[in-house]
Design a protein around this nucleic acid. Structure first.
Length: 601
RNA sequence: GGCCCCAUCGUCUAGUCUGGUCCAGGACACCAGGUUUUCAUCCUGGUAACGCGGGUUCGAAUCCCGCUGGGGUCACCA
């Protein structure tokens, strides 16, 4: 065996390894209790997943809290694009946009314009924030590791390793890299590497257990048998995630690493690199993962899965989507792992009338969720403020400011959580209902301008403001606000009257609703201007004059105008479609009722 | 399969560290009633959980062990 006792490099404090003099002048050591620097480091291989959003939110909140307490708190964003084949700039832009929309802003990182403000920047001079632009830094550290014998080049091809792995698995002995590269004399290894022979670089793992002091889970110790000498630089010259993350966190001064529990097993590897390089380890906190209510993983493929099921139920055999060939459609349908581009998937779902599960932040935005509700729910999934309201109930509804001043690891749960859309929906409905009419109208309009242009065409900003009080307590998302006023989208002469409702409201009982409707129709002309308040007043006056209850008058009108027994308060319902349409609809309803009534008798 | 993490109402959770005040509290959902011109909002009340088995103890949701169950991870992905 070629095991080496690990000892830190004589390089000194982490700051001195940076190429920026600034590093030394900042209090960014992990041991400085007055500094909290957290980071979110997504790999730009797709949209921002809701689980990623939660990680980002909590990292942000933790740094914010330090800042609010007068300490040095910063949240930074770094793009982990060391996988050249899967990363894309458009994904990066989407992620930045989604974070900004959620209200999660970063002090250091790529810049983006949002609401006339610039988010991000490089105030501390520790960028760039794209790992693909930091290769020289990684190589510098990898070279140090090789020189100090903490790492070594290895020349096996992926195929050779795959073969060995296969043998090991068949023999049911766990696979570990066998360190055969170390059988090559050191001199020769170095020469072959210098000569440009294709190789990877592996880290020599220590032969003693490594303990992670996790802030959520406590101490987690993993023995040396569980690790092999993993790769820190790939054949293509790019560092692997493990090396890059450690070097960047150190050079960027990250003090607290908050991430999903899937990284727990990686952490000992990171600690080993830190020790080999002489870096302090940041404080770690691994949070539980989020799952679907059925216990499955919340995956981007869930959307395709739902669509595929709907396609099969509808027995669709050819592609109904423009730009998607029948052949590709068939391939997609057959292959469980195949995904359709977002726009095609949405179009398909629209045609089939199915609701795709929201998985990415963008999905929730499209579905009409408010960022404040999403953030509130997300924060609560795994974190509990452990604080009571005045009425004795637990604090559950809070805003970003509350989160930013109260969030800490003490309140984190350890168990995996299921994502309950119904509860989220309730949070969203509450958040919507709490908006002022003005705020609701403007946010509804903003949403519709992107996702429901027809709504903006049918109603101008003033209309939407008038609609606000009626709609905001009747919708759970901005998207289903439209359903509340669906009757306004139907042509006056195309209303389909609900037979049961029509009979009950107009034809049944002593005081005939139909009679009331006929009389009320004649009074409509006098209501001016045709506002919700004036209409309500007119109906009240009418009821008093005829000495009947409101229900006797309101329901017939409601049915006449909307076709059914359910709608917002009458004043708003009538004002929405306007006097002319109301008269037309009532007239038509009277005709229908007269005919139906005659037929019945 | 090896290793690691986890385990309270259907779901998210409080309570567990510092055993008794917990025949287990809150929220969402659900059910019943009330307010209301319909619906929604709102208000009141209700159903509902300590995974199982052993210990320790006067006493265990709380401490220990085992089991079961869920999850993560075993890449030249991150």
């Amino acid at each position: 065996m070629h095991l080496l006792r690990l000892s830190p490099l004589p390089a000194g404090p982490r700051g001195s390894l940076g190429r920026f003099g600034l590093l030394n002048s900042h209090p960014m050591s992990a041991s400085d209790p007055n500094t909290v620097i957290t980071r979110f480091a997504p790999s730009p291989t797709g949209h921002l997943h809701i689980g990623g959003a939660r990680t980002a939110l909590l990292c942000w909140a933790y740094a914010q809290r330090a800042q609010k307490e007068g300490r040095n708190g910063r949240f930074l964003l770094r793009i982990e694009d060391t996988d050249q084949t899967r990363s894309s700039e458009s994904s990066t832009q989407g992620i930045l946009k989604d974070l900004a929309w959620l209200g999660i802003d970063w002090a250091d990182g790529p810049t983006v314009e949002h609401n006339n403000k610039t988010i991000g920047g490089d105030e501390r001079g520790v960028g760039p924030y794209y790992q693909s632009q930091r290769l020289d830094l990684y190589n510098e550290h990898i070279n140090k590791l090789i020189e100090s014998d903490h790492a070594y080049p290895a020349f096996e091809t992926p195929e050779e390793l795959e073969a060995k792995r296969k043998v090991a698995i068949e023999a049911k002995t766990g696979y570990k890299y066998d360190r055969s590269a170390l059988d090559i004399p050191r001199e020769e290894r170095m020469q072959r590497m210098a000569a440009g022979e294709p190789h990877v670089v592996r880290l020599k793992m220590p032969d003693s257990p490594i303990t992670v002091h996790d802030q959520i889970l406590g101490d987690v110790t993993v023995g040396p048998d569980e690790f092999d000498d993993f790769i820190i630089r790939k054949r293509d010259g790019f560092p692997t995630y493990h090396l890059a993350v450690v070097v960047d966190d150190a050079l960027m001064g990250v003090t607290h690493v908050l991430r999903g529990q899937e990284h727990l097993i990686n952490t000992p590897r990171h600690i080993a690199i830190q020790q080999s390089l002489g870096f302090d380890s940041p404080t770690y906190a691994h949070m539980p993962l989020i799952f679907n209510p059925d216990g499955s993983k919340m995956s981007k493929r869930d959307k395709d899965k739902t669509a595929k099921r709907a396609v099969k139920e509808a027995k669709l055999e050819s592609s109904p989507i423009e730009g998607l060939s029948d052949a590709d459609f068939a391939k997609w349908l057959k292959d469980k792992t195949r995904q359709l581009p977002s726009d095609q998937l949405i179009a398909l779902a629209g045609m089939l009338g199915v609701h795709l599960p929201e998985i990415d932040v963008e999905d929730f935005r499209r579905a009409g969720y408010l960022p404040e509700a999403l953030n509130n729910y997300l924060a609560l999934l795994g974190w509990n403020p452990k604080s009571k309201n005045d009425d004795g109930t637990d604090v559950e509804r809070f805003d970003m400011d509350y989160l930013a001043s109260h969030y800490g690891f003490e309140g984190m749960g350890k168990g995996q959580a299921k994502f309950d859309r119904v509860k989220l929906l309730s949070f969203n409905a509450d958040a919507i209902a709490q908006l002022s009419d003005e705020d609701f109208a403007s946010r509804w309009r903003d949403w519709a301008s992107s996702y429901d242009p027809a709504l903006c065409e049918r109603f101008n900003a003033n209309d939407m403001l008038m609609l606000a009080p009626a709609v905001k307590t009747r919708c759970k998302t901005l998207a289903d606000g439209r359903d509340v006023i669906g009757f306004a989208f139907v042509q006056d002469d195309a209303i389909e009257f609900d037979g049961k409702a029509l009979h009950k409201a107009l034809l049944k009982g002593e005081a005939k609703g139909l009679e009331m409707l006929k009389r009320f129709k004649d009074e409509l002309a006098t209501i001016d201007p045709f506002t919700p308040e004036n209409i309500e007043q007119a109906v009240k006056d009418f009821c008093e004059k005829h000495e009947v209850g409101m229900g006797k008058v309101a329901q017939p009108i409601r049915v006449a105008v909307t076709g059914g027994p359910v709608s917002p308060p009458l004043g708003q319902t009538l004002a929405i479609i306007g006097k002319h349409a109301v008269i037309a609809r009532i007239a038509r309803c009277i005709e229908v009722a007269d005919a139906g009534g005659a037929a019945k008798e």
